[in-house]
């Protein structure tokens, strides 16, 4: 790729989605764009970028940005966090909500493993919380990821990453070498494409929001704005879960550490609530 195309790509990703693209990692960037160029019938990445430069095709531009998002994820990534959510956070939130649904949002859900892990954890917590109701929301910048997430279908490799065998047999059915999450869990999740740099106030309030392994890929200024946007959507007792050691309270005064080693934050009461 030419230096001009790399600069254009970095600028598009930064301005439209707050994504930080390291332009010296040319090989990595090309490995992301090559499949897109093929899919869109361009002869090369250069031809793809020439079309992007013309700027006439908004869909293509977003496809390029989406191709640059990281969507490497596993079930129950950082296991300890999910144990804490199941054993401590979900029971506490369920009591707070007194039978009203606990609203949980996986804000960068990629191919769905995180939000389905939450739903499985809630199933297990439910035994001790017979009256609890949970609502799950998954959002991502990438339509392609959302489509896969929504299908609830995973390869044999994917279901072996992070998912203990007893949870696999409890929550999945197999069709040849494809594994389908149970309809009960799949139908409990609602999906939407969300760009976290946009205004989030239309999405409602949530009792738990997860944004894990995303901040390191965001431009720091944008990262702070995203955190403040999410803080504004937390209910008064809500918690924000970031990846371990991703900062949070250091980036914005809107957050107060609750369990920083696990990446768990609450909204600082002094931070103005979203309108």
């Amino acid at each position: 790729m030419t230096p001009e195309d790399l600069d254009l790509l970095a600028e598009l990703c930064r301005s439209r989605a707050g994504l930080r693209v390291e332009i010296d990692k040319t090989y990595l960037i090309e490995s992301r764009l090559a499949p897109l160029a093929r899919r869109e019938s361009f002869a090369s990445i250069d031809a793809l970028m020439a079309a992007v430069r013309l700027g006439r095709d908004g869909r293509l531009l977003w496809a390029v940005i989406e191709a640059m998002t990281l969507n490497d994820t596993t079930f129950f990534r950082d296991r300890k966090v999910f144990d804490h959510i199941r054993d401590t956070l979900l029971p506490a939130l369920a009591r707070r909500r007194e039978g009203k649904p606990v609203r949980i949002w996986s804000a960068a859900c990629a191919t769905g493993q995180e939000v389905y892990s939450l739903a499985m954890a809630a199933e297990e917590a439910r035994d001790a919380l017979p009256n609890a109701r949970f609502e799950f929301f998954g959002s991502d910048l990438s339509e392609r990821c959302l489509e896969k997430a929504q299908s609830g279908l995973y390869t044999q490799f994917e279901v072996q990453r992070g998912l203990p065998i007893r949870q696999l047999i409890a929550h999945f059915e197999s069709q040849d070498e494809t594994w389908a999450i149970s309809p009960r869990i799949r139908q409990g999740v609602r999906w939407r494409r969300v760009n976290l740099v946009d205004d989030l106030s239309g999405l409602g309030r949530f009792d738990m929001i997860l944004l894990r392994h995303v901040l390191p890929d965001l431009d720091p200024t944008v990262g702070r704005r995203v955190l403040e946007g999410l803080a504004g959507q937390l209910s008064s007792h809500g918690v924000l879960v970031l990846g371990p050691l991703e900062g949070g309270a250091e980036l914005t005064g809107a957050l107060r550490p609750a369990d920083p080693l696990l990446g768990i934050f609450t909204r600082d009461p002094a931070f103005r609530a979203a309108a």
């Binding site: 044999q156 490799f157 072996q160 990453r161 992070g162 203990p164 065998i165 007893r166 696999l168 047999i169 059915e173 197999s174 070498e177």
Partner: peptide
């Protein structure tokens, strides 16, 4: 890799179960 076989293995006293093909990441995680 059928659910019946997996259940039989667990009922017989296995703790975890890897379906081939696998890689180092899966082996370590399991």
């Amino acid at each position: 890799n059928s659910l019946d076989r997996i259940r039989l293995a667990l009922d017989s006293g296995a703790t975890e179960y890897i379906m081939k093909p696998f890689d180092g990441g899966i082996l370590e995680a399991k």
